[in-house]
Amino acid sequence: MTAALTLENVDCFYGNVQVLRGFSLELMQGEVLCLLGRNGAGKTTALKAIMGLVPPRSGRIMLGETDLTRLTAHQVPQAGVAYVPQGRRLFAELTVAENIEIGLMTRKKGKATRESVLDLFPVLRERLKQRSGTLSGGEQQMLAMARALCLEPQVLLLDEPTEGLMPSMIARIRETVAALRERGVSTILVEQRVDAVLPVADRVAFIENGQNRDTLDVERLRADPDLVHRYVGVG
């Protein structure tokens, strides 16, 4: 298997505070890799570093042959990395259709992409003219994912997509992630709770103090849930 995305010794700072310390990670083609760790461990920063929103001070982030650290923040998505940020962060005053349009414009995708994304989330089709800020939490999450999928990305970054959603909605999000894996999309999934990731992840990377402690196959975790306690402290 080849790597879709590789982070090598990435150091990231907010001002003088170092958040990522020699962070390394390898995302394989077509897998769902879960990033698990406590609050403030650097999960979100790792995703922002990939997107170029928090430019790393040192280290390399390779998407295939492209070094993403050499690109500006608006070129990273054009290279094929899509981001679903924590808290969804829709353009809340814009309509559903306009949010999707922004996604499509990123890589100049057209009607076909729009249709296939809307087929994935039929609820959104009925609400195209609605202001996205007035959608329910679950619908907003679907729109955030739809907006990202309009890039037809090779790599998808999901930051706590199930946060604050009801169980039926969590199941829908999970199904979507699994469906995307079938299509060959490689996904990094950030979560705080291990039960949210066990059903969908292929591998789990534990992150602590801005470092990658270990990366395990999900089978080993299923077989021995105590491992999680050792790495994260809380389940």
Binding site: H74, Q78, F91, I102
Partner: peptide, 9 residues
């Protein structure tokens, strides 16, 4: 987020 969708802010 606009940047994350290819907008050269």
């Amino acid at each position: 987020i606009a940047q994350a969708f290819g907008v050269p802010v």
